[in-house]
Amino acid sequence: MQDWIHLRIRRQDGPETPAYWQEFRLPYAPDQNVVSVLMRLREHPVTIEGTWVEPVAWDSNCMEEVCGSCAMSINGVPRPSCSALIDDLAQPILLEPLPKFPVVRDLLVDRSRMDTGLSRVKAWIEIDGAWDIHEGAPRISPAEWSENYLYSRCMSCGCCMAACPQYGSHSDFIGPAPLAQVRLMNAHPTGRYDKTDRLHRIMATGGLSDCGNAQNCVRVCPKAIPLTTAIGELGRQTTLQALKDLFGRG
């Protein structure tokens, strides 16, 4: 049994300033996760050398791995920090901001590019308005439901994007998460109406074809979203779409 929880945290005071490392050591306690340790740390932010420093900035909200806000790189791997149990982690625990996203401060990053991606692919159902039209959507079989449900759980944490070797500031790639939402929206009885438009959007620059099938995305996704299945299905949909475009049946 360890007596300490030993953290190495990569810190950065602002988007433009250089990063630096600090080490912290807290008394061991059972049933802790990375966020609960960070919470303890901010009550007493003293480094291993005994210097008082500014509390670490990070992002969290639900503490149940459902809001997606707390993703960071933990021992090198992007994952939500609220569900990273200390007992399962090798020490010292390395905490770094979620890779690929611009750092705001310390472990806080700017994930607005994910939102841009979702807007870009029209990840919504086009409805007339948010009023009751006294009619629901058409029926969906339980089998189809259970496939769609898998994708509807994506919490935009950004882990898949962080792990994707094709995604980052160097490329236009929108990344796997928005692609999976295209798969979801295209399967909805009403969402289907905009399928062609969505497909054209992901057939444009930075779209589906920037995926190189590294499949890290699906390995790191904490919600087990079948991203690579979505990518395969979109491959099929775009193949057919390209044929339709070619032979004039848009």
Binding site: N213, V218, T229, I231, G232, E233, G235, R236
Partner: peptide, 11 residues
Amino acid sequence: IVWGLTTSARA
């Protein structure tokens, strides 16, 4: 995968 022949992880 690119062309959409194999989609599921199993395939």
